[in-house]
Design a protein around this nucleic acid. Structure first.
Lengths: 152, 152
DNA sequence: GGCAAAGAGTTTCAAATTGCAACCGACTGG
DNA sequence: CCAGTCGGTTGCAATTTGAAACTCTTTGCC
């Protein structure tokens, strides 16, 4: 088990044809998405990630290694010429819609009335509206109005 | 650790104010999202989930219990009056945008050129376009044009 | 330059989680 | 009413996780 291909991808999925399964294989654990979240929020250094997430240091080292191996994060020279820092790659930044939808789901379903939580605001200071999948013609879609078409 | 509150929620988060953390706490493991995915795709029975995901039976039992406890799935009388089946609650169905964005990320970043995968189509048979977070005025947003505002 | 402190991991070991396979009672179909 | 199927549970073995201490490298500063 835990066989990896040349790109470091695990090959023992239930269904290799399902992009959801492959995505979960990369970020479907307790910490990876929180690391990505913090990277989007400005975290750059090892201890920065460690303190924000509270993850154990050995696990953090392991997750950062995997995220780098999967191409979501890269170690780059710090702009200030100091220590190398972790930065999101385009693939990592592309998880933004996932983080936002997860956040919005959490806001709707993981808080009791009266509990407070942080909110996502845009560069004008306005709250980001709910993200909703739509058809090409603009109709909102749900799990009831979509189906998965298997490859030919 | 692993203390739970009355609603079965774990209370040992890094940041209780972060909805992303709370969402991950519920569905941030290797299997929960795949179970939700299969439920959206029509899975109803225990063995149905087991065969589609390939998850170990004891773990599946545990995950279904937790998802029921968290209110994402409910056990309901089968329409046919037979065995009880698992069905998504509104909160479970509301994960649709998360599943879709994860799927789309997977399609973009977890496949080599030439590899095939399933695609999500709407009820007209058209492929679901990329889901992108937008500001109230319609501008597309990214992690660079948004920030998290902590509660007062 | 020299030194103390901080950063970035690594190591060690215990505890928790996973996975497999076998087992079991309830339901159902014929 | 008998044979399968369903929906789990149980007992381990194998992994994974987590906490804490330890090491090596960089930095800040005088």
């Amino acid at each position: 088990m835990a066989r990896d291909d040349a790109a470091g991808r695990n090959l023992a999925w239930t269904d290799p044809n399902c992009p959801v399964a492959r995505a979960v294989d990369v970020v479907g654990d307790r910490w990876s998405l929180l690391i990505i979240r913090d990277a989007m929020d400005g975290a750059r250094s090892f201890t920065d990630f460690q303190q924000r997430t509270g993850i154990a240091r050995n696990i953090l080292a392991d997750r950062l290694r995997k995220l780098v191996a999967h191409g979501l994060i890269a170690q780059v020279e710090a702009p200030t010429g100091k220590r190398r820092v972790y930065a999101l790659t385009p693939a990592g930044k592309d998880l933004f819609p996932v983080i936002v939808t997860l956040r919005q789901w959490g806001e709707r379903h993981a808080y009791d009335a009266g509990e407070t939580h942080s909110v996502l605001v845009d560069d004008h200071g306005a709250v980001v509206p709910p993200v909703v999948p739509v058809a090409a013609d603009g109709r909102p879609l749900t799990s009831d109005t979509t189906t998965v078409r298997k490859p030919a």
